[in-house]
Design a protein around this nucleic acid. Structure first.
Lengths: 226, 226
DNA sequence: TGACATAGTGTGTGTTTTACACTTAATTGT
DNA sequence: ACAATTAAGTGTAAAACACACACTATGTCA
């Protein structure tokens, strides 16, 4: 396709902030750059948008190519367009954030040069990726309190304690067990399973799964956590 | 600057959803296109991003050039990247939403081919601009309930009734007068002025102004309307 | 079988939200 | 000058929700 509009053009990339949860800390997936600029520095997975794919498609393609990730929760975050974010030329980047279930975390780690870092202890990042990551983190915190997306970071079957640990890790403070359980169950989003999980020398925990159908009903009204 | 990264490239535009409030209905500012594609169709103000300006700068420049608007509240909304949103070639658009005080509304209307439309009665729009506008509207609704931005659509001095009308227009339902006033005043964002406004055969109304300093204190904690 | 560890549960108190109706102060017309 | 009109401004009681708080239940393991 020829350039109908004739200007010097910025290059377009997508960058993905991929969050995972290991049961204790919130983690972000980074990739070590093999080429300059910022060779050998950690960076967000991402790459150029092709002229025949949408932005979402570009983000999903990069996640699959670079990290072997499929079917993750993915949402557009913000578009970063500082003039000199890339030292070589003008590059505008549409940032996404992704939430990955533990089942998929292993796959991601297999990918060459990809590694999970706890968000509390990140290495120096290339470009403006530290800023992007900070933006993603505050968006995640915000969303967690008014939309049921925490489940995207947990295995399909999980206990209420796991869910509470996740909320505590992301929000950064302790929650009261009884109030948390009362609140979560009152939202009527979880289906208790027959099974329970035995893990250690103590009473086994009831397993639940998230019920997206119930969630849809709720989404419109909105809910509020905390 | 040469193209270091060598691909076919999308063109980059910004489009602005500009909201205003006339005391009764929420309004959006549109421009009649003078050139194809969609010649003579109404569209959002916007244009190409120059290679040496940031995205925010591009949005502000277009608002000033096309509508004579300066110093408006402006926030990035979402980036639209469907492959065929522009019939001629690939164009990715970073959408913004802007809130304009009535003092500036007149200026905007003077601009050639620009006109305010009530959002409840919009003409057919060019490109995917109807979708962008819908997105902006739902963002505005959302933000209004948890951030003090309503003031950006009112004159510097306003009455509580004006503020209530604005909330009712945007949210689309009636609010109880006493509860509204109690809630708004409890947020401690408004400074009562010495003056009052006489307007019609009835008791005059107390004027207030929004106090951004107090608002900053509040912003961190967040507040909740409704 | 006892020690241990996490799961699971209820109540009382203070705060917030909601529903609801009359008085006040100005203008206008007679 | 006063009666009618119009929107401004004000309080309270009941219900819902948020928060603080501590013990019992059920499994494993030595």
């Amino acid at each position: 396709m020829p350039h109908v509009y004739d200007h010097p053009r910025a290059a377009l990339t997508v960058d993905c902030v991929v969050f995972g949860f290991d049961g204790g800390e919130l983690q972000a997936l980074l990739i070590r750059r093999g080429l300059p600029p910022f060779k050998d520095t950690w960076a967000l997975p991402g790459g150029f948008v092709r002229v025949e794919e949408t932005l979402d498609e570009a983000a999903r393609r990069e996640l699959e190519e670079e990290n072997g990730l499929r079917n993750v929760f993915l949402e557009q975050l913000y578009t970063f367009g500082s003039v000199h974010r890339d030292p070589r030329e003008r590059v505008v980047s549409i940032a996404y954030f992704a939430l990955v279930k533990p089942e998929a975390v292993a796959a991601a780690t297999d990918a060459a040069e990809a590694k999970w870092f706890p968000v509390s202890d990140l290495p120096t990042l290339a470009f403006d990726h530290a800023e992007i990551l900070t933006t993603a983190l505050s968006r995640l915190r915000g969303k967690l309190t008014y939309q049921p997306i925490g489940f995207e970071l947990l295995p399909r079957k999980f206990t209420l304690t796991q869910l509470q640990r996740l909320y505590e890790a992301v929000l950064g403070h302790h929650l009261d067990k009884r109030n948390f359980r009362k609140k979560v169950l009152s939202l009527d989003l979880l289906t208790p399973l027959e099974e329970s999980r035995q893990e250690g020398p103590h009473r086994p925990a009831q397993l639940f799964r998230f019920d997206p159908e119930r969630s849809d009903r709720l989404k419109e009204r909105g809910f509020l956590f905390e």
